[in-house]
């Protein structure tokens, strides 16, 4: 007996992590429930706003707007592509659910950007911050979602808002990492030149670091969007609505049709968002001589206004010469 316990000390020697977590959680739930309820508020506001806008727009107008947006950021082909994917979403009958999912994804993206970009900037500036948050980011990405799904429900309840919260936890890391990377990989000579011309830290960030890191940050935004979409299905377990719930319900009832339609909707949405953000990233990569307002539908409208204004100026002159 003694030999066995000597060679295998873990029979008696254990750290009761599980018990600790449970007691901490119980303590939090009993004493700070109101605090966590209050923490829902900002997410609730943004989510409500986005959802009401998206559900208010009729499908045809929505398709048209997205096509125009796609055209603006990446040319007419992207516009057509956007129109096709969104039309497909409507045709397979998941428009409403798609809009709910889209508003969840946009809301979580909003909070990921608000939290992630500053965190990325900080960790690019201070090595200690990077060292500290790196293991936390690792945990956020690798910890199975089911593990924190339960505590989130206990603290925040169920529904769309806690759903956004778990999505943020899962989708935040790549944006922080890529913002950090984007700023750190800026060539040293550009930084040195900016310093030599008397940049303050603030000016360095706004005028040099962020613009030069934009393509990488946009890649982070793209990754965050993709991860948010994949999280939506898991989040549907805590009663998050939208496409994820279709999939979950389909699996639960062994209704493969329903599940496939929901899955297809997610894929279409993913392709739509992926292409759009990638195009935006490339756009920021090659900014320069041509301004954004000189191309696409806005450029078209502006140039039309421009030429009509010139004509208006020109007409009285010709009249004058005729007289």
């Amino acid at each position: 007996m003694i030999d066995v316990s000597f060679l295998d000390p873990f029979q008696n020697l254990t750290i009761p992590v599980g018990e600790w977590v449970e007691s901490v959680l119980n303590y939090l739930v009993h004493n700070f429930r109101d605090f966590f309820r209050a923490a829902r508020w900002p997410i609730d506001q943004i989510l409500d706003l986005v959802e009401s806008i998206l559900s208010f727009i009729p499908p045809l107008i929505g398709i048209l707007l997205s096509a125009l947006f796609g055209w603006q950021v990446a040319g007419p082909r992207m516009g057509v592509f956007c129109a096709i994917t969104l039309t497909m979403l409507g045709l397979i009958g998941v428009w409403e659910q798609s809009m709910v999912t889209l508003s969840l994804v946009i809301t979580s993206l909003f909070f990921c950007v608000v939290i992630g970009v500053p965190l990325g900037i900080l960790s690019a500036r201070y090595d200690r911050v990077e060292k500290t948050i790196r293991p936390i980011l690792d945990a956020m990405q690798t910890l199975p979602a089911f593990v924190y799904l339960v505590p989130v429900v206990m603290l925040f309840g169920i529904g769309n808002v806690p759903g956004v919260l778990v999505t943020i936890i899962f989708a935040l890391p790549p944006l922080v990492r890529l913002t950090n990377l984007g700023i750190r990989q800026i060539p040293e000579d550009k930084i040195e030149a900016a310093r030599a011309f008397g940049c303050t830290k603030q000016q360095m960030l706004v005028k040099v670091q962020l613009p030069l890191a934009t393509p990488t940050i946009m890649a982070g935004v793209n990754q965050t969007l993709m991860l948010s979409l994949s999280m939506v299905v898991i989040a549907s377990m805590i009663s998050v609505e939208g496409l994820g719930q279709m999939v979950l319900r389909g699996i639960g009832r062994l209704d493969m049709g329903l599940a496939t339609v929901g899955g297809l909707g997610l894929v279409l949405l993913a392709i739509f968002l992926d292409r759009l953000t990638q195009a935006m990233g490339e756009q920021s990569n090659s900014s320069g001589a041509v301004r954004w307002y000189q191309v696409g539908p806005i450029g078209l409208v502006l140039s039309w206004f421009d030429s009509s204004a010139k004509q208006n100026v020109a007409t009285p002159q010709t009249k004058a010469t005729q007289e």
Binding site: P187, K190, A193, A196, F197, V208, P211, L212, T214
Partner: peptide, 12 residues
């Protein structure tokens, strides 16, 4: 003001 070997112009 400084002029650099690598030019160090801002590409954006």
């Amino acid at each position: 003001s400084m002029v650099f070997q690598s030019f160090a112009l801002m590409p954006h």
